[in-house]
Design a protein around this nucleic acid. Sequence first.
DNA 1: AAGACCATGTAAAGCGTTACATGATTCT
DNA 2: AGAATCATGTAACGCTTTACATGGTCTT
Lengths: 178, 178
Amino acid sequence: MSLRHAALGLLVEMDGASGYDLLKMFEITMGNVWQATQSQLYGELNKLTAEGFIEVASEGPRGRKEYRVTDAGRAELRRWLLEVPPKIVRRDDVLLRMFFLGQVEPEEAAAFVRKQSAGAERALADLTALEGRIEWGDDNLSFYGRLAMEYGRRFLAMRADWYEWVVQELAERDAPKS
Amino acid sequence: MSLRHAALGLLVEMDGASGYDLLKMFEITMGNVWQATQSQLYGELNKLTAEGFIEVASEGPRGRKEYRVTDAGRAELRRWLLEVPPKIVRRDDVLLRMFFLGQVEPEEAAAFVRKQSAGAERALADLTALEGRIEWGDDNLSFYGRLAMEYGRRFLAMRADWYEWVVQELAERDAPKS
DNA sequence: AAGACCATGTAAAGCGTTACATGATTCT
DNA sequence: AGAATCATGTAACGCTTTACATGGTCTT
């Protein structure tokens, strides 16, 4: 149940934001860490309101609702942050496929891994390019966004390295030392 | 919809396995890559049977059903493996919390990150110890399991490094250069 | 005989995705 | 006036978790 806390946390930084605003900010700042669909976010905002963690501060044009975090909301955010043990759910579609590469021809397997490797390299290049274009402020969202971006770089680099190592391992298994 | 393919793939390697067998193997070999509950697995096996991707080869004591992958199942596994683009869903409970560390006191934030760091180091030590105890065969499950384990090591090491870097960044922000 | 383990299943509730629906406002 | 964008919501369906439920078999 972390979409709730992601929304709560974002709203603390963006006081007076609407669901629409939050949704955009979600994509920009936390898309790589937590994803949310429009549907889900609007639903969660209503639940948070019903439970008193946020409230509608004012209403704007086009039915826009501007939210504010209540004291109860801040307390809940803090509680979650420091007291709820993070739940690690590992589900990795690419890694899962790796397990079954023995089912296809060696060349197909190698091609698959090389493709993933190229994808990681490309994503890393994109991220590095993006990083250069962003003008970081010194607000919280910028500061922590930069940390997350560095994480992304390290993650992608690690993946790319590992993929290359896997390609070698596959080659060795396919053509064992003579 | 990858639990389906995880089950299908495992069953190819473990012909004649029951749901119970698969469940144990899931935990041992792929727990870090894809998780499944008992409930879910039994349900999926029934669906796979209904759709003709697997079949009950024989029945054992205690209602045990031993499954076998059909040709259609093998074809489906291959199709998924090579033709369905992997879907990358990033949801990381720890990383999400990082974004909101500005909400708590600097010491609390630093303590949080150090705790995660220690957790990663510990997990890395456990994994390395485990690796030494395992006797790897040369079957597919062993071979790919070893690759996955190496991934886990690199992942955890990367996380630990990054956490330490974050601690430093936090300290610098808290006490800027005099 | 008791306890451990084998073995499968159902039900409920929550989370997440996709698609559909509606309408207001702003810009060109 | 038409297009783009702002803005929120509902419905259906599937995935995931948790809890409950049941009973057979093997070991000591």
